[in-house]
């Protein structure tokens, strides 16, 4: 099965985003940008997802939700933070209820720039994350069975 690319199952979570990036994420899935041509499919269930797309910064209430979604995802997994808010809080970084970017709660692999991020760059971010996922899958497979947990770079960072 070495030559076969796996399809990526995506779960999307909106942490205090303004909706601008969210609707662009949705636009990626519709016919004009069509992320499904890369084998991506959006699922509502984090337990079946490989890739977590997060839009918006983290606030005091949703930080636990975000951590729990991330925690439910099986290894190997990757996180794409979309937009300026997901990087640093963006335009809202000085608001009293915004703690900062997604990296304050969970490890991030790919940042997508823009406010709002454009669908082209979101697709690019997803594909970069797909490459990271592939590396992790290989690493997981070659790691000794009993040391599997925490063996990936991402696991070490947590």
């Amino acid at each position: 099965m070495g030559g076969v690319e796996r399809s990526i199952w995506i779960v999307h979570y909106d942490a205090s985003s303004c909706n601008g990036c969210d609707i662009e994420v949705l636009a990626c899935l519709t016919p004009v940008y069509d992320a499904e041509r890369f084998g991506c499919i959006v699922t509502g269930d984090p337990k079946q997802a490989d890739l977590l797309l997060v839009t918006g910064g983290v606030n005091n209430r949703n930080v636990e939700v975000l951590k729990s979604i991330y925690g439910q995802m099986p290894e190997p997994r990757a996180v794409v933070a979309i937009g300026a808010c997901a990087y640093s809080g963006g335009v809202f970084s000085e608001c009293y209820n915004v703690c900062g970017g997604v990296a304050t709660a969970i490890p991030v692999d790919v940042y997508v720039p823009g406010c709002a991020a454009k669908p082209e760059s979101i697709l690019d971010g997803v594909l970069r994350a797909a490459a990271i996922l592939k590396e992790r899958r290989v690493a997981l497979r070659s790691a000794p069975r009993n040391a599997k947990k925490g063996s990936t770079e991402e696991g070490a960072r947590r």
């Binding site: 205090s16 303004c18 601008g20 609707i23 606030n59 949703n62 809202f92 608001c95």
Partner: peptide
């Protein structure tokens, strides 16, 4: 879950610059 508190940000921004924040109340 998405409360940011942007109404209070008006106190830290110039009134002409706050338009950018107001636009991002909702995308």
């Amino acid at each position: 879950y998405i409360h940011r508190g942007l109404e209070m940000l008006v106190e830290k921004r110039d009134f002409t610059d706050y338009v950018h924040v107001a636009e991002r109340i909702c995308g």
